[in-house]
Design a protein around this nucleic acid. Structure first.
Length: 467
RNA sequence: GGCGGGGUAGCCAAGUGGUAAGGCACGGCUCUGCAAAAGCUGCAUCGUCGGUUCGAUUCCGACCCUCGCCUCCA
């Protein structure tokens, strides 16, 4: 079965087939962070979504080249650099490093390339030059360069591929910044922004004067440079569809005359505690905030991966607590399987993999995929409880889990090493219980608990588990 | 105003023209000296009103509510 994804271009679910004639290589670009602050949990939903797409394509045998840009020059960044009295590189470096730490904490596979906008200025200038040459872009008197949507349409290109636009009804220009009044048309957008005093040291030379690139041109220049003028897959948050991605298409196709991206996928936004995230509501969480509350990256990742990527999702602290319990259910089962399997080696249990992968083939139906996993866990638990599972079957189950986990990236909880002095306490409690000195036994149990370890009395004896 | 998503049990969330996956929470049971942990197990008629149909949560229409985009935004 082939993977089918919703393509924003066609507004329908269609089979994913890469441009590569061999059907093997996939070029995938995901709009990355603007590094002006710590990224929040909503941002990470998109990056975890992109990571899922990449992992699933790899699971399906594609050789994916994953590119994610770092936007390290932009209005907000420049303002904050000025306010902080620091340099661009120092300022953005801090948040870039934090971002990369955060995605690592969420167990996202590192993209193969993470280009910084400021290192591709030459490519952007080239691209703008091509657009000017083709008469699609123009230089305004103050030195900025704009993309003309009218001229672009005039050469037979279509503006409005991702979003149905009705320019007569659109409230175009209601929020246009005052420094953009030199545009010929309100719908035009900046490719190159002329240097202004507030930019400080942040500017580059260009044939049109000193300045800096517009936002949209970054992604066109970097994606085409690294993946070619036409590539397979472009992802981002749903808010980027218009204007950012629409403008990327216009700039790229306007310059090259070739189709830019075959398949566009957009992830829906996150609500937090039922509301749009905002600092005043107190529901604005960075990843760091959540880690500081004691939640782990895998719990957060799991929760972000419980809902379909095209539906808005309500992220709550209660949900995060529930995620912890749900993961423990999987962890417990895996631990029992490992114990039973021992050194036995076997292939992967095909039935669960088939269900799991089939669900994801269907436009990444992750909820159905999890249902397959939990049904499987329940069946295994039944067999384990009835002592009916053979070591070979346990090994096959673990093999299947390994393959599924390569997609969901939840991992297994690592078994914490029990300190020897606690093991001695455990032995003492066992002895006390054997002697029916339950009072002493319970005292030790409480003592262990206060040290962060719970006793689990199982049929095979007492075990310690880290709380 | 234009365009596009949603409304399924206490919460999160799949899905289907023939009476509804999974997870969390909750109840019951097993295990236990008691607990805890773990396991098993129980728990909904699908926003409202009409229509089509032998039959609709699933199709059509209207309405209500909600979220997003319309040049800061994952």
């Amino acid at each position: 079965m082939a993977a089918r994804f919703f393509n924003t271009l066609s507004r329908s679910v269609q089979e994913f087939a890469p441009l590569d004639p061999a059907g093997k290589s996939v070029g995938m670009y995901c709009c990355g962070p603007t590094v002006h602050d710590f990224a929040h949990i909503g941002n990470f939903r998109t990056f975890v979504f992109a990571d899922l797409v990449r992992r699933f394509l790899e699971f399906r045998g594609f050789a994916v080249t994953h590119v994610m840009n770092i936007t390290d020059v932009e209005d907000k960044i420049i303002r904050r650099v000025r306010e902080a009295g620091t340099t661009l590189r120092e300022f953005t470096g801090k948040y870039e490093a934090a971002f990369l730490d955060d995605v690592r904490a969420l167990n996202c596979l590192p993209p193969h390339q993470t280009p910084r906008a400021t290192e591709y200025i030459a490519e952007m200038v080239d691209l703008i030059g091509q657009l000017i040459e083709r008469g699609i872009a123009y230089r305004a008197p103050e030195g900025s360069v704009y993309f003309s949507i009218e001229k672009y349409r005039g050469c037979g290109c279509k503006y409005g591929q991702l979003v149905k636009l009705n320019f007569d009804e659109m409230r175009v220009g209601e929020r246009v910044a005052s420094d953009e009044y030199e545009k010929e048309s309100l719908a035009d957008f900046a490719l190159w922004k002329a240097r202004v005093p507030d930019d400080g040291d942040v500017f580059w030379p260009s044939p049109w004067g000193e300045g800096r690139p517009g936002w949209h041109i970054e992604c066109s220049a970097m994606s085409m440079k690294l993946l070619g003028p036409s590539f397979d897959l472009h992802l981002g948050g749903e808010d980027l569809a218009f204007p950012h991605h629409e403008d990327e298409i216009a700039q790229s196709e306007g310059a090259t005359g070739q189709p830019f991206v075959k398949h566009w996928m957009h992830g829906a936004h996150l609500l937090v505690e039922g509301k749009k995230m905002s600092k005043s509501l107190g529901n604005f969480f960075t990843l760091r905030d959540l880690l500081a509350k004691g939640f782990t990256g895998r719990e957060i990742r799991y929760l972000l991966l419980t809902a379909h990527y095209r539906d808005s999702f309500n992220f709550t602290i209660d949900g995060l607590t529930g995620a912890r319990t749900a993961l423990a259910r999987i962890d417990e089962c895996l631990a029992k399987l490992r114990e039973l399997a021992g050194a036995t080696v076997a292939g992967s249990d095909a039935a669960v993999l088939h269900k799991f992968a089939g669900a994801l083939d269907d436009d990444l139906n992750i909820s159905a995929a999890w249902a397959a996993v939990f049904d499987w866990v329940r069946d295994l638990n039944r067999a384990l409880a009835a002592n009916e599972l053979q070591p070979a079957a346990a090994a096959a189950a673990l093999g299947a889990w390994q393959r599924m986990d390569a997609v969901v990236g939840i991992g297994g909880k690592s078994e914490a090493e029990v300190p020897v002095e606690l093991l001695a306490l455990l032995d003492e409690r066992n002895a006390a219980r054997k002697a029916k000195d339950f009072k002493r036994g319970d005292t030790i149990r409480d003592e262990l608990k206060s040290k962060g370890w719970a006793i689990e009395d199982t049929a095979k004896g007492a075990k310690l588990k880290k709380l």
